[in-house]
Amino acid sequence: MIESHEGKVLSLRNLTMRYTGKQVLTGIDLDVYRGQIIGYIGPNGAGKSTTLKIMLGLVDGYGGEVEIFGQDIARSDHTYKRKIGYVAENAEIYDNLTASEYLTFIGELYGMDRDLAEEKARKLMQEFDMADVFHSRISSFSKGMRQKVLIISSLLHDPDLIFLDEPLSGLDANSVMIIKDILEQLAAKGKTIFYSSHIMDVVEKISNRIVLLIDGKIAADGTFEELREQSKQGSLEGIFNQLTGFDEHQQTAEQFVDIVMDGERNE
């Protein structure tokens, strides 16, 4: 059971961050509750990855307060991390290990018994139709297979708070549907999921709350239906483009295609 006040899992108060003189985060206030799937979106450079790394305890030097499970992470020890799962956008994975070795190792890092971690990893690999490669080296895996191993590694220890940064990279359509259903069922059982992606239609379908970050601050926060009502746009992509001020995509595409086809007209 999550030890938090009234189901609050995560709280950011006036979160700021500067890198080499540049203000990356300009004062984020955010409360996240048990069972929510947060779609965390924004253009490149908006501060999404910085926010995630601060919450994960990977970056310090920030201003403001970050509370996870009711603890100020600047003052608490590392034990809160045992209840967190994470899939990084560009995750490093030990290619020379087998899937069994890697997942058992990750499980032990989170304090799991070795035999339990290995058995649970084997069962999860089987659910992804990967039982036959459980003892194969990860170096022989396709991108999609590696991504499934990373997803398993983030969930193996039964975390209460899960951070996913572009978790569907390299997955086929069937696998995407499975992961979507897994996330919905985890949330229904009280897990909290922080989902960051550039794939707007997936964020729209998965999230029950969407937070849009622009220039280091929150520009929109609500359900898809609430954001659609406010913006009068029919899709999350349309809402995103309106709020970020990006309306040149069609013109850019036309100019790009004109250049591509210019050779044909000159023949």
Rank of each mutant, 00 (worst) to 15 (best):
M1A: 12
S4V: 10
V9L: 05
S11E: 15
L12K: 09
Y19V: 11
T20H: 10
T20A: 12
G21H: 11
G21R: 14
L25I: 05
D29Y: 13
D29N: 15
L30Q: 10
L30P: 05
Y33Q: 05
Q36I: 03
Q36K: 10
I38K: 00
Y40M: 02
I41K: 07
G42D: 05
P43A: 08
K48N: 04
S49T: 15
K53G: 02
M55P: 13
G64I: 11
G64D: 08
E65Q: 13
I68P: 01
F69G: 00
G70S: 09
Q71V: 07
I73Y: 06
R75E: 12
D77K: 14
K83W: 07
Y86Q: 03
Y86K: 02
A88N: 06
A88Q: 10
E89I: 05
A91H: 02
E92K: 09
E92I: 11
N96V: 06
L97D: 00
S100E: 13
S100A: 14
T104F: 04
I106M: 11
I106A: 01
E108G: 06
Y110E: 05
Y110W: 10
G111F: 09
L116H: 09
A117T: 03
E119F: 03
K120T: 12
K123H: 12
E127W: 05
E127M: 11
E127Q: 14
F128R: 02
D129A: 11
A131L: 12
V133W: 12
F134R: 01
G144I: 03
G144R: 00
R146Q: 12
I151Q: 08
I151Y: 08
S154M: 06
L156E: 02
H157K: 07
H157I: 08
H157W: 12
I162S: 04
D165L: 02
E166A: 01
D172G: 07
S175G: 08
S175A: 15
M177V: 13
I178L: 13
K180N: 14
E184M: 13
L186Q: 05
L186C: 07
L186F: 11
G190L: 05
K191R: 14
K191D: 02
I199A: 13
I199P: 00
M200Y: 06
V202P: 00
K205F: 01
I206Q: 01
S207M: 04
R209G: 00
I210H: 03
I210D: 00
L212P: 06
L212K: 06
K217M: 09
I218D: 07
A219F: 09
T223P: 14
E226I: 01
L227N: 08
R228E: 09
S231V: 05
S231E: 07
G234M: 00
S235N: 11
L236G: 08
L236K: 08
L236Q: 04
L236C: 10
E237G: 12
I239S: 07
I239K: 11
I239G: 03
N241M: 15
D247Y: 07
T252R: 15
E254N: 03
I259R: 14
V260M: 15
R265V: 04
R265T: 06
